[in-house]
Nucleic acid binder design. Structure first.
Lengths: 350, 350
DNA sequence: GTGAAAGCGCTAACAC
DNA sequence: GTGTTAGCGCTTTCAC
């Protein structure tokens, strides 16, 4: 951190005291009238009058002073692994909407996968006395979560979750999503299906992979027809690398289920290189239905997740956690659906 | 705003005073050693020792208390018109990176186009004593900017700018971008070119449109061959509506320059409906080169803007503005390039 | 239902 | 170069 110039202090704003004097009431009364939690302590008509003048004159009490006094900030930190992954737009949008409805502002940090950086950011935001965190970054066994738990920091998870249910989380039903994808492909006639998994350290990678195995077993078909490969990262590039490797080893595959849309797009890249056509030669299914998934070529068949909804649920979970830190941890699971577009078709020769 | 439950206060953390006692120094010395701006007031070895222990024990002074004392918060508010527009990912990423390097955290608000909502959010964040704002929302004549100027709030603009140079801004060279697009199409042999403009209340809409007119005039070609239409909004849907109208009126157009990528994607939708092929029947050029522009079908030829860089520049401008509020306003213009992909080709019959 | 007063934790002017 | 002290603006206990 570099601090270039000594930053001139901003203009001092009107204080509660000044404003109260103007309205001919005591600062305490003013404070009580303006705070939703204490408003009922003030005579109803007086409270209304105070709120009205505050609204018209645009007076807002200094949040830093309030925070110093109360130990709470109405600020929430959100840690994202990769803001340029379009799937986080609707998640973030759902989070901020629900939080702002609850009176909270959101500080977003794009921290990447580096756990030490994540920890540093947690400390930065803790110095700001944020009331809690929403993590979209967690591994199945996450040091950041441990760190928060040890320090009594309120935290919930979104999209990804941990192996152990130590904290509340809002996630999609990963197993069911893969079932939807598999059912769809099997109905189309595919038998040699590959799964391009996300790293197993991520719940989305792990659980979708497990589900794939389960479904393969349940179908009682020849498991050898299917194939598995884990990508090194969640990105288009990692998807391309993994898909290339998978198709090199198993050129007989007629369909690939990617653990998410970015990996699916990487698969597109690999297919293009290999001069294979999608869906004619290989069908591809994604996961998440991120914005623009309908516009890529071919439009991507993918497991649709209600991301805004999931973000909103995570926000609610955090608000509940802040209100009652000891309460039981909850797991909110949103049910995905399959959005069929043009990247899937019956296999060649049918 | 609803406040559900009375939110239990978080655990009180270690104070500067306690921590100073632990290190056997006075709180003032501790404070000075920990603050980059006052570190030089403390004996060098002592400062180093204090910083080291603070780092290992993870001590951070309460930012709310510091903010109350200094009137500054090292918080910046960023107002976006539409977080789900992928072009804002790299802009935001550039902003937060540069700001965090300067010691600032970022509060992002997705406020839409509603000016009253924007004003309300400005007030919310002002109550938090943010040190300044970066606006990606402005109109060519913007009430929010006026509001900030009247109240001495530090503010800079990104991506869009105002008609008058009242505040600093980081923008792309809109005129040059259109020139690049036009040159490209003309070289391919197009003569009947349409421009799908963004709303003229936005600088990007206005300036790209003006540039289109200028270039048409300069080419001394038959201006009547060209065509203009302004979309109602910056969205794929508005782009589809406008493109449909444009092609209904002028079926002879062989190319369309959209004022941005979302409008270009809407144009794709319209072409698909009309059973016209891109680029065979109609070439399309976008603007911004947002993430995934290379993956849509066909891959979009578009004016590439260094969005991360632009966001970073905006952050620098705000940091300068905070340090020296009276200083001359600056306009940082990043120069775009043309990224040619597959949505442009020579017109039919050549 | 309203007023008085203390104090949250920090920084910066001042004293030495 | 370090210590002392006052006070930023709010909330909340207590008194009335």
């Amino acid at each position: 951190v570099r601090r270039a110039k000594p930053a001139v202090p901003g203009p001092r704003a009107v204080t509660l005291k000044q404003f109260a004097a103007h309205a001919r009431v005591h600062a305490s009364t003013e404070s009580r009238a303006l705070n939703p939690a204490t408003r009922r302590l003030v005579a109803d008509d007086l409270a209304k009058k105070i709120q009205a003048t505050a609204a018209t004159l645009g007076f807002r009490p200094n949040a830093a002073a309030a925070s110093l006094r109360t130990g709470r900030s109405h600020l929430v930190g959100v840690l994202l692994p990769d803001i340029s992954n379009p799937v986080f737009s609707p998640i973030l949008s759902g989070i901020t909407e629900a939080l702002s409805f609850g009176g909270y502002s959101t500080i977003v940090a794009d921290v990447g996968e580096d756990v030490d950086r994540q920890l540093r950011l947690i400390d930065d935001l803790r110095a700001r006395r944020v009331d809690g965190f929403i993590l979209a970054t967690v591994h199945r066994d996450d040091r950041v979560v441990s760190y928060c738990l040890e320090r009594n920091i309120r935290v919930v998870l979104v999209n990804r979750s941990e192996r152990r249910p130590r904290v509340s989380a809002a996630v999609s039903d990963d197993e069911f999503g893969i079932e939807l994808a598999m059912d769809h492909l099997v109905k189309l006639g595919h038998r040699a299906i590959g799964h391009l998994a996300a790293p197993a350290r991520l719940s989305t990678g792990y659980r979708r992979l497990q589900s794939f195995k389960t479904v393969v077993a349940r179908l009682e078909q020849n498991g050898k027809l299917c194939h598995l490969l884990e990508a090194d990262a969640v990105s288009r590039e990692a998807g391309a690398v993994a898909a290339r490797a998978m198709l090199a080893e198993r050129p007989d595959l007629t369909a690939i289920i990617a653990a998410n849309d970015l990996l699916a797009l990487g698969t597109y890249d690999a297919l293009r290189e290999l001069k294979l056509k999608c869906p004619e030669d290989v069908s591809v299914v994604g996961h998440n239905d991120m914005p623009l998934a309908d516009l890529v070529s071919p439009p991507l068949t993918t497991v649709h997740i209600g991301c805004r909804e999931m973000g909103g649920e995570a926000a609610q979970l955090l608000i509940a956690e802040i209100a009652e830190p000891g309460a039981l941890k909850r797991n909110v699971v949103v049910r995905p659906t399959l959005t069929v577009r043009s990247s899937t078709a019956p296999p060649r020769g049918r």
